[in-house]
Amino acid sequence: MTTVVEDENQGTSGPAAIGGGRVIEHDVLDVTHGPILYLDDITVSFDGFKALNNLTLTVEAGELRCIIGPNGAGKTTMMDVITGKTRPDSGTAFFGQTIDLLRMTEPQIAHAGIGRKFQKPTVFEQHTVFENLELAMKTDKRVRRSLFAKLDSAHGDLIAATLEQIKLAQAPDRPAGLLSHGQKQWLEIGMLLMQEPRLLLLDEPVAGMTDAETERTAELFNSLAGKHTLVVVEHDMDFVGAIARTVTVLHEGSVLAEGAMDVVQNDERVIEVYLGR
Protein backbone atom coordinates (compact mmCIF):
# COMPACT_ATOMS: atom_id res chain seq x y z
CA MET A 1 0.00 0.00 0.00
CA THR A 2 1.34 3.42 -0.89
CA THR A 3 1.33 6.04 1.79
CA VAL A 4 2.40 9.61 1.43
CA VAL A 5 4.10 10.77 4.58
CA GLU A 6 4.62 14.49 4.66
CA ASP A 7 7.75 16.06 6.01
CA GLU A 8 7.15 17.09 9.62
CA ASN A 9 8.67 20.50 9.12
CA GLN A 10 6.82 21.25 5.91
CA GLY A 11 3.56 20.39 7.57
CA THR A 12 3.86 23.28 9.99
CA SER A 13 4.76 26.31 8.02
CA GLY A 14 3.30 29.51 9.44
CA PRO A 15 3.15 29.40 13.22
CA ALA A 16 6.47 28.00 14.40
CA ALA A 17 6.59 24.63 16.04
CA ILE A 18 7.94 25.29 19.51
CA GLY A 19 10.26 22.85 21.21
CA GLY A 20 9.43 20.04 18.85
CA GLY A 21 5.72 20.22 19.71
CA ARG A 22 3.33 20.64 16.81
CA VAL A 23 0.98 23.55 16.54
CA ILE A 24 -2.37 22.36 15.35
CA GLU A 25 -3.69 24.34 12.44
CA HIS A 26 -7.29 23.52 11.88
CA ASP A 27 -7.52 24.38 8.22
CA VAL A 28 -4.39 22.60 7.13
CA LEU A 29 -4.61 19.03 6.00
CA ASP A 30 -2.45 16.87 8.24
CA VAL A 31 -1.79 13.33 7.11
CA THR A 32 1.44 12.81 8.97
CA HIS A 33 -0.11 10.21 11.24
CA GLY A 34 -2.07 7.89 9.02
CA PRO A 35 -5.33 8.22 7.16
CA ILE A 36 -6.49 11.08 4.97
CA LEU A 37 -10.14 10.16 5.49
CA TYR A 38 -11.53 8.82 8.68
CA LEU A 39 -15.21 7.93 9.10
CA ASP A 40 -16.25 6.52 12.44
CA ASP A 41 -19.61 5.08 13.40
CA ILE A 42 -21.61 7.18 10.94
CA THR A 43 -25.36 6.71 10.90
CA VAL A 44 -27.72 8.43 8.51
CA SER A 45 -31.41 7.73 8.58
CA PHE A 46 -34.14 8.87 6.24
CA ASP A 47 -37.51 8.61 7.96
CA GLY A 48 -36.31 5.74 10.13
CA PHE A 49 -34.59 3.91 7.27
CA LYS A 50 -30.87 3.67 7.93
CA ALA A 51 -29.02 4.46 4.69
CA LEU A 52 -25.74 4.31 6.65
CA ASN A 53 -25.56 2.12 9.70
CA ASN A 54 -22.56 2.61 11.99
CA LEU A 55 -20.27 2.94 9.02
CA THR A 56 -16.59 2.98 9.89
CA LEU A 57 -14.04 3.43 7.13
CA THR A 58 -10.52 4.81 6.79
CA VAL A 59 -8.63 5.67 3.66
CA GLU A 60 -4.86 6.16 3.64
CA ALA A 61 -3.27 9.10 1.84
CA GLY A 62 -2.36 8.27 -1.75
CA GLU A 63 -4.60 5.24 -1.87
CA LEU A 64 -6.88 4.26 -4.74
CA ARG A 65 -9.84 2.73 -2.99
CA CYS A 66 -12.76 1.11 -4.73
CA ILE A 67 -16.13 0.89 -3.06
CA ILE A 68 -18.61 -1.60 -4.37
CA GLY A 69 -21.98 -2.78 -3.16
CA PRO A 70 -25.47 -3.47 -4.43
CA ASN A 71 -27.92 -0.68 -5.28
CA GLY A 72 -29.05 1.16 -2.19
CA ALA A 73 -26.04 0.04 -0.15
CA GLY A 74 -25.34 3.65 0.86
CA LYS A 75 -22.37 4.45 -1.38
CA THR A 76 -23.69 7.76 -2.62
CA THR A 77 -24.97 8.66 0.83
CA MET A 78 -21.47 8.12 2.18
CA MET A 79 -20.13 10.66 -0.32
CA ASP A 80 -22.92 13.04 0.64
CA VAL A 81 -21.75 12.86 4.25
CA ILE A 82 -18.10 13.43 3.37
CA THR A 83 -18.87 16.46 1.19
CA GLY A 84 -21.31 18.11 3.60
CA LYS A 85 -24.46 17.55 1.59
CA THR A 86 -26.00 15.28 4.20
CA ARG A 87 -25.46 15.64 7.93
CA PRO A 88 -25.29 12.30 9.74
CA ASP A 89 -27.35 11.57 12.83
CA SER A 90 -24.26 10.41 14.67
CA GLY A 91 -20.61 9.63 14.12
CA THR A 92 -17.48 11.54 13.21
CA ALA A 93 -15.82 12.33 9.92
CA PHE A 94 -12.29 13.71 9.72
CA PHE A 95 -10.18 14.79 6.79
CA GLY A 96 -6.62 14.15 7.89
CA GLN A 97 -6.00 14.56 11.60
CA THR A 98 -7.43 18.00 12.14
CA ILE A 99 -10.25 18.85 9.77
CA ASP A 100 -13.69 18.02 11.13
CA LEU A 101 -15.87 17.63 8.06
CA LEU A 102 -19.12 17.64 10.00
CA ARG A 103 -18.66 21.28 10.98
CA MET A 104 -18.08 22.55 7.45
CA THR A 105 -20.23 23.65 4.54
CA GLU A 106 -19.93 22.19 1.04
CA PRO A 107 -17.76 25.04 -0.33
CA GLN A 108 -15.49 24.92 2.73
CA ILE A 109 -14.99 21.19 2.27
CA ALA A 110 -14.19 21.74 -1.39
CA HIS A 111 -11.60 24.36 -0.40
CA ALA A 112 -10.08 22.02 2.16
CA GLY A 113 -9.24 19.71 -0.74
CA ILE A 114 -12.06 17.26 -1.40
CA GLY A 115 -13.46 17.07 -4.92
CA ARG A 116 -16.50 15.13 -5.92
CA LYS A 117 -17.93 13.72 -9.11
CA PHE A 118 -21.65 13.03 -8.99
CA GLN A 119 -23.30 9.78 -9.99
CA LYS A 120 -25.22 11.65 -12.70
CA PRO A 121 -22.60 13.67 -14.59
CA THR A 122 -23.06 17.29 -13.56
CA VAL A 123 -21.36 19.95 -15.64
CA PHE A 124 -22.41 23.47 -16.56
CA GLU A 125 -24.28 22.67 -19.76
CA GLN A 126 -24.59 26.24 -21.04
CA HIS A 127 -20.90 26.95 -20.59
CA THR A 128 -18.15 25.83 -22.91
CA VAL A 129 -15.75 23.07 -21.98
CA PHE A 130 -13.08 25.70 -21.39
CA GLU A 131 -15.33 27.76 -19.13
CA ASN A 132 -16.28 24.68 -17.14
CA LEU A 133 -12.62 24.08 -16.35
CA GLU A 134 -12.01 27.76 -15.68
CA LEU A 135 -14.85 27.86 -13.15
CA ALA A 136 -13.58 24.77 -11.37
CA MET A 137 -9.99 26.02 -11.17
CA LYS A 138 -8.43 26.35 -7.74
CA THR A 139 -8.37 30.06 -6.96
CA ASP A 140 -9.95 32.65 -4.69
CA LYS A 141 -13.65 32.00 -5.17
CA ARG A 142 -15.13 35.01 -3.39
CA VAL A 143 -17.52 37.36 -5.17
CA ARG A 144 -15.23 40.37 -5.45
CA ARG A 145 -12.40 38.32 -6.91
CA SER A 146 -14.69 36.76 -9.48
CA LEU A 147 -15.90 40.15 -10.66
CA PHE A 148 -12.37 41.32 -11.44
CA ALA A 149 -10.84 37.95 -12.28
CA LYS A 150 -8.56 37.77 -15.28
CA LEU A 151 -7.17 34.59 -16.68
CA ASP A 152 -3.39 34.67 -16.54
CA SER A 153 -1.24 32.57 -18.81
CA ALA A 154 -0.24 30.09 -16.09
CA HIS A 155 -3.91 29.31 -15.58
CA GLY A 156 -4.43 29.09 -19.33
CA ASP A 157 -1.63 26.53 -19.56
CA LEU A 158 -3.11 24.56 -16.71
CA ILE A 159 -6.46 24.43 -18.48
CA ALA A 160 -4.77 23.42 -21.73
CA ALA A 161 -2.94 20.60 -19.96
CA THR A 162 -6.14 19.36 -18.37
CA LEU A 163 -7.91 19.50 -21.73
CA GLU A 164 -5.21 17.15 -23.06
CA GLN A 165 -5.59 14.87 -20.08
CA ILE A 166 -9.34 14.48 -20.52
CA LYS A 167 -9.09 14.20 -24.32
CA LEU A 168 -11.10 17.33 -24.99
CA ALA A 169 -8.31 19.46 -26.43
CA GLN A 170 -10.19 19.58 -29.75
CA ALA A 171 -13.36 20.98 -28.24
CA PRO A 172 -12.61 23.79 -25.77
CA ASP A 173 -15.36 26.00 -27.21
CA ARG A 174 -18.09 23.40 -27.44
CA PRO A 175 -21.00 23.92 -25.02
CA ALA A 176 -20.77 21.18 -22.41
CA GLY A 177 -24.41 20.29 -22.98
CA LEU A 178 -23.52 18.99 -26.46
CA LEU A 179 -20.92 16.49 -25.24
CA SER A 180 -21.54 12.75 -25.22
CA HIS A 181 -22.26 11.09 -21.89
CA GLY A 182 -18.75 9.73 -21.63
CA GLN A 183 -17.23 13.10 -22.51
CA LYS A 184 -19.32 14.76 -19.81
CA GLN A 185 -17.95 12.24 -17.33
CA TRP A 186 -14.45 13.17 -18.39
CA LEU A 187 -15.16 16.86 -18.26
CA GLU A 188 -16.40 16.47 -14.72
CA ILE A 189 -13.26 14.54 -13.83
CA GLY A 190 -11.24 17.34 -15.45
CA MET A 191 -13.09 19.88 -13.34
CA LEU A 192 -12.12 17.91 -10.24
CA LEU A 193 -8.50 17.94 -11.32
CA MET A 194 -8.62 21.72 -11.82
CA GLN A 195 -9.63 22.01 -8.17
CA GLU A 196 -6.33 20.32 -7.28
CA PRO A 197 -7.95 18.27 -4.54
CA ARG A 198 -6.08 15.93 -2.22
CA LEU A 199 -9.01 13.53 -2.12
CA LEU A 200 -11.21 12.72 -5.10
CA LEU A 201 -14.55 11.04 -4.63
CA LEU A 202 -15.78 9.53 -7.88
CA ASP A 203 -19.30 8.15 -8.02
CA GLU A 204 -19.67 5.72 -10.96
CA PRO A 205 -17.17 7.52 -13.20
CA VAL A 206 -17.33 5.11 -16.17
CA ALA A 207 -21.11 4.71 -16.41
CA GLY A 208 -22.07 5.35 -20.04
CA MET A 209 -18.52 5.16 -21.35
CA THR A 210 -17.42 2.99 -24.26
CA ASP A 211 -14.91 0.21 -23.56
CA ALA A 212 -12.08 2.28 -25.00
CA GLU A 213 -13.07 5.27 -22.87
CA THR A 214 -13.29 3.05 -19.80
CA GLU A 215 -9.82 1.74 -20.44
CA ARG A 216 -8.38 5.23 -20.75
CA THR A 217 -10.13 6.25 -17.55
CA ALA A 218 -8.52 3.32 -15.73
CA GLU A 219 -5.13 4.52 -16.99
CA LEU A 220 -5.86 8.05 -15.82
CA PHE A 221 -6.88 6.93 -12.35
CA ASN A 222 -3.85 4.70 -11.99
CA SER A 223 -1.64 7.65 -12.88
CA LEU A 224 -3.37 9.91 -10.37
CA ALA A 225 -3.06 7.55 -7.41
CA GLY A 226 -0.17 8.37 -5.13
CA LYS A 227 -0.22 12.09 -5.69
CA HIS A 228 -3.96 12.18 -5.06
CA THR A 229 -6.14 9.93 -3.02
CA LEU A 230 -9.04 8.42 -4.94
CA VAL A 231 -12.21 6.83 -3.69
CA VAL A 232 -14.07 5.27 -6.58
CA VAL A 233 -17.57 3.84 -6.47
CA GLU A 234 -18.26 1.54 -9.41
CA HIS A 235 -20.50 -1.29 -10.50
CA ASP A 236 -18.30 -2.19 -13.50
CA MET A 237 -16.26 -5.10 -12.13
CA ASP A 238 -13.77 -5.19 -15.01
CA PHE A 239 -12.99 -1.57 -14.34
CA VAL A 240 -12.66 -2.20 -10.62
CA GLY A 241 -10.36 -5.10 -11.38
CA ALA A 242 -8.19 -2.85 -13.54
CA ILE A 243 -7.62 -0.20 -10.89
CA ALA A 244 -8.33 -1.75 -7.51
CA ARG A 245 -5.76 -2.20 -4.85
CA THR A 246 -8.11 -2.36 -1.90
CA VAL A 247 -11.83 -2.95 -2.31
CA THR A 248 -14.46 -2.15 0.30
CA VAL A 249 -17.84 -3.81 0.02
CA LEU A 250 -20.76 -1.85 1.46
CA HIS A 251 -24.01 -3.54 2.30
CA GLU A 252 -27.04 -2.06 4.03
CA GLY A 253 -25.10 0.94 5.19
CA SER A 254 -22.03 -0.72 6.70
CA VAL A 255 -18.82 -2.37 5.62
CA LEU A 256 -19.32 -6.02 4.78
CA ALA A 257 -15.81 -6.87 3.68
CA GLU A 258 -12.56 -5.18 2.83
CA GLY A 259 -9.34 -6.36 1.23
CA ALA A 260 -7.68 -7.19 -2.07
CA MET A 261 -9.94 -7.77 -5.06
CA ASP A 262 -9.51 -11.55 -5.23
CA VAL A 263 -9.96 -11.96 -1.48
CA VAL A 264 -13.17 -9.96 -1.51
CA GLN A 265 -14.41 -11.76 -4.59
CA ASN A 266 -14.08 -15.10 -2.83
CA ASP A 267 -15.68 -13.98 0.41
CA GLU A 268 -18.84 -16.02 0.92
CA ARG A 269 -20.89 -13.20 2.41
CA VAL A 270 -19.97 -10.93 -0.46
CA ILE A 271 -20.90 -13.56 -3.02
CA GLU A 272 -24.21 -14.00 -1.27
CA VAL A 273 -25.29 -10.34 -1.20
CA TYR A 274 -23.69 -9.03 -4.29
CA LEU A 275 -21.56 -10.92 -6.71
CA GLY A 276 -23.51 -14.13 -6.65
CA ARG A 277 -26.80 -12.71 -7.84
Binding site: A110, R116, E131, L147, A149
Partner: peptide
Protein backbone atom coordinates in the same frame (compact mmCIF):
# COMPACT_ATOMS: atom_id res chain seq x y z
CA UNK B 1 -19.25 38.76 -19.20
CA UNK B 2 -17.07 38.56 -16.08
CA UNK B 3 -16.23 35.35 -14.31
CA UNK B 4 -18.80 36.34 -11.72
CA UNK B 5 -21.41 36.28 -14.47
CA UNK B 6 -20.36 32.79 -15.46
CA UNK B 7 -20.68 31.69 -11.84
CA UNK B 8 -24.22 33.13 -11.75
CA UNK B 9 -25.30 31.14 -14.81
CA UNK B 10 -23.61 28.10 -13.33
CA UNK B 11 -25.70 28.55 -10.18
CA UNK B 12 -28.78 28.66 -12.41
CA UNK B 13 -27.83 25.46 -14.23
CA UNK B 14 -26.19 23.28 -11.55
CA UNK B 15 -26.01 24.85 -8.14
CA UNK B 16 -24.66 21.75 -6.38
CA UNK B 17 -21.71 21.58 -8.77
CA UNK B 18 -21.00 25.23 -7.97
CA UNK B 19 -20.93 24.48 -4.26
CA UNK B 20 -18.72 21.43 -4.62
CA UNK B 21 -16.38 23.50 -6.78
CA UNK B 22 -15.81 25.70 -3.75
CA UNK B 23 -18.07 28.69 -4.42
CA UNK B 24 -20.55 29.73 -1.77
Amino acid sequence: SSKLGRVLTAIRDAESRVMFSGYD
